[in-house]
């Protein structure tokens, strides 16, 4: 009886379905455009003309900082009868531009991650350096 029960349980475990989902928020940032920004020269008006309205504006005393971002999220779910396996990988492009009291760019910092997002199972490592590098190489303005 036990082998038969195990066989039924095994079959039940194997029966299932899978689902994939993707959610994008905002357009990925154009790294080539961001590279044209020059501290001391570029103004807030220049940045807004090239990137549009920022997601957030932060007042920093007499300074201001604008945030631009985009996010891509990929989800994978494997449904089995007794157990489900799910993975969610979300990564962002982010840009912060800092302006002085004359609205002239003083600093900026950018991170590009939307192209690294993966469909994966939960036991997989989605942060492997080699994987990131190969994806970076295919994105203009990001790969070395």
């Amino acid at each position: 009886m036990i082998p038969r029960t195990l066989a039924v349980l095994s079959l039940a475990l194997l029966a299932g379905a899978c689902a994939f989902a993707r959610q994008d928020t905002n357009e990925p940032l154009d790294a080539a455009v961001v590279q044209t920004f020059k501290p001391g020269t570029t103004t807030a008006r220049d940045v807004v003309e090239k990137l549009g309205a920022p997601t957030e504006v932060v007042q920093l005393g007499k300074r201001t900082a604008y945030r631009y971002d985009a996010t891509t999220q990929k989800s994978t779910v494997l449904f089995l009868l007794l157990v489900n396996f799910g993975n969610q990988d979300a990564r962002s492009d982010r840009l912060w531009v800092f302006f002085d009291d004359k609205d002239v760019l003083t600093h900026f910092g950018a991170s590009y991650g939307t192209h690294r997002t993966q469909y994966a199972m939960p036991w997989e490592d989605v942060h492997e350096a080699a994987d990131n590098q190969s994806r970076d190489a295919n994105r203009p303005g990001v790969g070395k």
């Binding site: 993975n87 969610q88 939960p122």
Partner: peptide, 8 residues
């Protein structure tokens, strides 16, 4: 069994 990854 779930894995959630947000950013690096």
């Amino acid at each position: 069994y779930g894995h959630v990854s947000i950013d690096e």
